[in-house]
Amino acid sequence: MSATPSSTAYRQSPVSRTVAMLVLGVFTLYFLTPIWWLFIAATKERGDLTTTNPLWFSDLNLVENLQGVFSYGDAILPRWLLNSVLYAGVGSLVATVLAGMCGYALAKYAFPGREVIFNVVLGGVLVPATALALPLFLIFAQVGATNTFWSVFLPSIVSPFGVYLARIYAASSVPDELLEAARLDGAGEVRTFFSVSVRLMVPALVTVYLFQFVAIWNNFFLPLIMLRDERLFPVTLGLYNWNTVVNQVPELRLYVLTGSLVSIVPLIVVFLLLQRFWRSGLGTGSVK
């Protein structure tokens, strides 16, 4: 019987704190080791790659490697990075706007077929992007639009999960009374959305943006199927290409590693900038 009152105290006991920290520490190590390995590998000369300790420095060669990887193949890597930023950065921005509007409409307007549409969108969450790549390729081939910027960009601006999250969030965070007040003040529906509702939905929208950014950045299969022009590749596909011909051009092994290190930098930056919003966005839905 005396166990019940002590349960809150138990949670904060030094033992459990230590255990929690230990578990967190182990996982941190587990996740950071590959990045550390990558960083170390990118600082090495090609010959040292296999012959020296993979987790510690040998000759520092990072600057030369960076120069090499940025200039290889007529300086194609900066182009790939730019493409990735366009596909992921702009694509997820458009996706967030579309998902936000759609979710808001589903939450705040009653119209026939609303639940049907929502359920169809919800079904879309279950379909993996990989399974859609081939049908998308065949559709784009019909209109002669494969191997174009749009063939990767357009499919990227659709986010069923974003619609779902935006609807749930809009339903709980945008009061109907506020919308009524805006209407009475003479604001149109579009203006109400952009100047009132969007501000209330920011945490959810940031979450959608981050999810979609990561999804597009890591979406490898769609560009693999769609693109044949090297100048349109995102950085993931470009590095993969290099990796498949390492046998023919041995210096590429090092460039793939250095390029991978460079390619994770934008992801880290986006996360550091937006993680505050993301945390509140994820938490809010669950407490409701």
Binding site: L134, F137, L138, A141, Q142, G144, T146, N147, L224, I225, L227, R228, D229, E230, L237, Y240, N241, T244, V245
Partner: peptide, 25 residues
């Protein structure tokens, strides 16, 4: 010139898809 990964790493599958869609190189 068009390029991509080596044959068995995806390019052959792409060739077959493109033949199917009627737009191979």
């Amino acid at each position: 010139v068009q390029t991509g990964p080596n044959g068995n790493s995806g390019t052959y599958q792409n060739f077959f898809n493109q033949l199917e869609a009627g737009n191979p190189p």
